[in-house]
């Protein structure tokens, strides 16, 4: 099973709607609530990163036996130094975004904590692809 959602850059009024749809689907499919909680945190952070930094993006979630694989790819500025971006507290968010309570430099660390495998590929001035994998039993 595979689900696709479009994410519009800069549109904070809709931020979280793709993650919310995925959450509903996973609950309907009776995925363990603890797994759903982790996946939702990681998805939301990745979705907000697209809204806050990129022009547009796509969230693709594939559900297989015992595995959820989510790929969030965007067209945007890219990340010049991924290791630096992974550090808690590091952020390049705009003052406007920070005033809303985003941009605390906790997004990527939250993603890492809430999935089992994280791969980030980025090309400066082109875009970023974040792939997160979560394994579960039952």
């Amino acid at each position: 099973m595979e689900f696709h959602y479009h994410i519009e850059g800069g549109d904070f009024s809709r931020a979280g709607s793709a993650s919310s749809e995925i959450k509903k689907i996973l609950k309907q499919l009776n995925v363990d609530p603890r797994v759903v909680k982790r996946v939702v945190v990681a998805l939301y952070e990745a979705e907000v990163n697209v809204v806050a930094h990129a022009r547009e993006g796509e969230m693709k979630v594939a559900l297989g036996p015992g595995v959820i694989e989510a790929t969030i790819s965007d067209k945007g500025p890219g990340i010049p130094d991924i290791a630096l971006a992974m550090q808690e507290g590091y952020s390049t968010a705009s003052p406007r975004v920070r005033e809303m309570g985003f941009g605390a430099g906790m997004g990527l660390p939250n993603i890492k904590k809430n999935c089992d495998r994280l791969d980030i590929e980025s090309v400066v001035n082109a875009g970023t692809t974040v792939k997160m994998t979560t394994f579960f039993t039952g």
Binding site: F102, A104, M106
Partner: peptide
């Protein structure tokens, strides 16, 4: 908390 990612990462149901 006023930091949204802090709530996302640490608040509970």
């Amino acid at each position: 908390s006023d930091l949204l990612s802090d709530v996302m990462g640490h608040a509970r149901e």
